[in-house]
Design a protein around this nucleic acid. Structure first.
Length: 490
DNA sequence: GCCCACCGCGCG
DNA sequence: AAAGCGCGCGGTGGGC
């Protein structure tokens, strides 16, 4: 295939893909409008209640004295001034862009200074009731202002019809808007419940369901890079790279790494490294976490992980300065070694691929994904190494949507696809179709997909979640297949 | 009143 | 040299 042009296969995937996405848009997704109304009210009340409470605080008094009728509790700039100038709290995190002669922290160049950040993460160590409560309020404002308001605005006859675009993402992923269906709260349980309860099956007695690709990007990375160790990890359910890497990070036997420690290893080291982070950033994030969390114990004991590391000679985090080498005996120094093991001993073939792939990009000015898309132009190194994985992982889902829709039509099913989130598909089914639909989903992913994409050289699998009849998106529980019958996993 | 950059934050 | 990838959206605040 000619460089500079996407392949006919890539074109066909997006051609068929945009049609199925338009059908999903037209289907739309049903909203519990009565619950929407009451949730909007409850959220607004909560915001009002907390705001009034905040306005009785000493901090607000100071704030008011300085800004008078210009005082705005939603202004980050004002908050920064109150906390860091008036109250003399020492800022530790700064925003990306500078400001001309602003607050005078950390000079960038003449007259240009970094601004202290007022994000929740930046302020998490300020143990002040006003600050804590302020972020409670911001949470409810986010729910009400972005999600509830967005749903209400787009409501048509009790349905919303989020758009799914294929022309915006540089990686050849999709995006969604009006409202964005791909950023509905999930991790924060209270937020998740407030919003996901609103999404209900389109007909009485039907199921709301979701199929997810298991580890979509990791499996794709193993195929794209050809790293055999990574392929072994995603192919064998008894192997676990987050656990093994956690053993290195926390100086524990691999078998003992589970729960929170595994979670930290996975999200703050393994995934961060795959996205191109490096030891100073990952070490700092992990050290901050273990200093903050009082209940992080060596599994099966009451020894805090920090004390455990101290017993191994690591009692300092380090300076985490990008212009200085870490000092021996610090956590930063230790993570540097864990990083070396990760890339040079655990995944050496991935490392070779990264080097080769980036050099190839520098020579050609572009590259082609395994799915045939041509990507070119000025890109950062991390982008060059991430795009060829992020795109194809989504293309697996897009192929799934196309072929699921084809099968539904051919068999005159009543089941409807109602949404898509990068590696998951949401649908609604009558009870008499749910078994066939889940069976077909499983077959498409495990059998048909690897036949279609010859680059898939590691097993793809689905995870399935289903709500009881009339249950909402929030009410879904994991289902598994037992002797050919899909049912509640537990 | 409109536009824009920036920040912050929700998701994968 | 770069330093965590990809999105959409709401609010603030400055400029016109």
């Amino acid at each position: 295939m000619k460089r500079g042009v996407s392949s006919p296969e890539a074109y066909k995937l997006f051609h068929d893909g945009i049609i199925v996405l338009s059908e999903i848009e037209a289907n739309g997704i049903k909203i519990d409008t009565e619950l929407l109304k009451s949730t909007i009210k409850a959220t607004a009340d909560k915001v009002k209640e907390i705001k009034e409470e905040l306005q009785t605080s000493e901090v607000w008094k100071v704030w008011k004295e300085h800004y008078a009728d210009k005082a705005n509790i939603g202004s980050g700039q004002q908050l920064a001034h109150v906390l860091f100038d008036i109250m003399k709290i020492k800022p530790v995190v700064f925003t990306e862009k500078g400001s001309l002669s602003d607050l005078g922290f950390g000079k960038i160049s003449d007259g240009l200074y970094y601004k202290p950040s007022t994000s929740e993460k930046a302020l998490q160590d300020i143990d002040h009731p006003f600050v804590r409560r302020l972020f409670d309020m911001k949470g409810y404002e986010k729910v009400g202002g972005t999600f509830l308001k967005g749903i209400k605005r787009e409501l048509v006859d009790g349905f919303i019809h989020p758009f799914f675009d294929l022309h915006t993402a540089r990686t050849f992923r999709s995006s969604s808007k009006f409202p964005n269906f791909q950023n509905i709260p999930k991790r924060d349980k209270e937020m998740a419940e407030a919003i996901r309860k609103l999404f209900i099956p389109r007909e009485k007695g039907w199921h709301f369901w979701e199929t997810d690709f298991k580890g979509a990007e990791v499996v794709t990375a193993s195929c794209v890079t050809g790293d055999r160790a990574l392929r072994a990890y995603v192919s064998d359910k008894n192997k676990d790279m987050h656990r093994d890497t956690g053993g290195d990070l926390f100086l524990l036997p691999k078998d003992s790494v589970k729960g929170d420690l595994r979670h930290i290893s996975k999200n703050q080291f393994v995934f961060a490294e795959f996205y191109g982070s490096y030891y100073k950033l990952t070490a700092k994030a992990i050290w901050d976490t273990i200093c903050r969390e009082k209940k992080l114990f060596v599994p099966g004991t009451e020894i805090h992980i920090k004390d455990h590391l101290a017993s191994k000679g690591i009692s300092e985090g380090g300076l985490f300065r990008h212009d200085e080498d870490p000092e021996a005996g610090t956590f930063e120094y230790h993570v540097k070694e864990v990083e070396r093991i990760f890339w040079h001993e655990r995944f050496p073939e991935y490392t070779k691929w990264k080097k080769k792939w980036f050099e190839q990009y520098q020579k050609e000015g572009g590259f082609r994904t395994v799915t045939g898309f041509w990507i070119e132009g000025p890109l950062t190194k991390n982008a060059v190494l991430n795009y060829p994985i992020q795109g194809p992982a989504f293309h697996c889902l897009l192929w799934f949507l196309i072929n699921m829709q084809k099968w539904l039509r051919k068999n005159k099913m009543r089941t409807k696809l109602v949404g898509q989130i990068h590696d998951s598909c949401e649908g609604n089914s009558p009870p008499d179709e749910i078994q066939d639909v889940l069976g077909k989903a499983n077959e498409l992913v495990t059998v048909d997909l690897p036949k279609h994409f010859s680059w898939i050289t590691a097993p793809m699998s689905v995870e399935v979640a289903v709500a009881p009849p009339d249950g909402s998106w929030f009410d879904m529980k994991e289902w598994k297949c037992f002797d050919g019958v899909w049912k509640l996993a537990a």
